[in-house]
Amino acid sequence: MNLALWIAAGLLAVVAVSGGISKTFVPKEKLAVVRGGGWTADASAGFVRTLGVLELLAAVGLIVPAVLDIAPVLVPVTALCWILLMLGAMITHGRRGEAAFVVLNLIYLAVAAFIVWGRFGPGPFSG
């Protein structure tokens, strides 16, 4: 169980880093023309960057607290926050009729839910 939870957190962290870097450092005009990035045309540059920074922080929160054994409870808390972020993404893509991205965000949400369930339930970090 512990290995599966680490793998899930690692995969989700990679997703978060990827999305976070693009939203933080790529101009929203470039993101708007990429498949799935059309929503950025309707959002302010500050909002897009804020989401990017939140995703980068999520990547850190999914891994670093457990690795350093400093407040490892932050791992499932971060995963819970990721669930909220994915709900917003699913609503945004759903309104735009982008069903494939709704499904993709649902998969990310499910991975985060597994981390929340596992780390708050049967697979907590033992100190």
Score class of each variant (00 low, 15 high):
96 R>D: 10
72 P>I: 10
119 R>K: 14
13 A>V: 08
21 I>D: 02
120 F>R: 06
97 G>L: 03
103 V>P: 02
71 A>W: 02
84 L>C: 12
6 W>K: 01
22 S>I: 14
68 L>C: 09
117 W>T: 00
99 A>L: 14
34 V>A: 13
120 F>G: 05
46 G>N: 07
64 V>T: 12
19 G>I: 12
68 L>G: 06
30 K>V: 03
65 P>M: 07
59 A>T: 03
15 V>Y: 05
11 L>G: 15
76 P>D: 04
49 R>S: 11
26 V>N: 02
62 L>N: 01
121 G>C: 08
106 L>Q: 01
69 D>R: 13
114 F>V: 08
30 K>G: 02
35 R>A: 15
111 V>Q: 02
18 S>N: 14
96 R>G: 02
112 A>R: 01
70 I>A: 09
122 P>W: 15
11 L>H: 06
69 D>A: 14
48 V>N: 07
62 L>W: 03
121 G>Q: 06
22 S>L: 13
92 T>E: 15
84 L>I: 11
112 A>Y: 00
91 I>M: 10
17 V>S: 02
119 R>A: 04
94 G>A: 07
85 L>H: 10
102 V>A: 04
86 M>Y: 12
125 F>G: 02
17 V>K: 05
103 V>C: 05
20 G>N: 06
5 L>S: 08
41 A>E: 10
50 T>D: 10
15 V>A: 13
102 V>N: 00
78 T>H: 06
119 R>T: 03
81 C>A: 14
104 L>K: 11
29 E>H: 08
70 I>P: 00
60 V>Y: 08
115 I>D: 01
25 F>N: 05
53 V>A: 13
118 G>Q: 03
48 V>Q: 02
49 R>I: 09
77 V>S: 04
78 T>Q: 07
43 A>M: 12
85 L>P: 00
125 F>S: 05
71 A>V: 04
114 F>R: 06
63 I>S: 04
95 R>S: 11
39 W>I: 04
101 F>W: 11
120 F>S: 03
52 G>E: 11
103 V>L: 09
31 L>Q: 04
93 H>V: 08
45 A>N: 09
94 G>N: 07
55 E>D: 12
104 L>T: 05
124 P>L: 05
43 A>P: 00
76 P>W: 03
78 T>S: 07
111 V>E: 01
79 A>P: 00
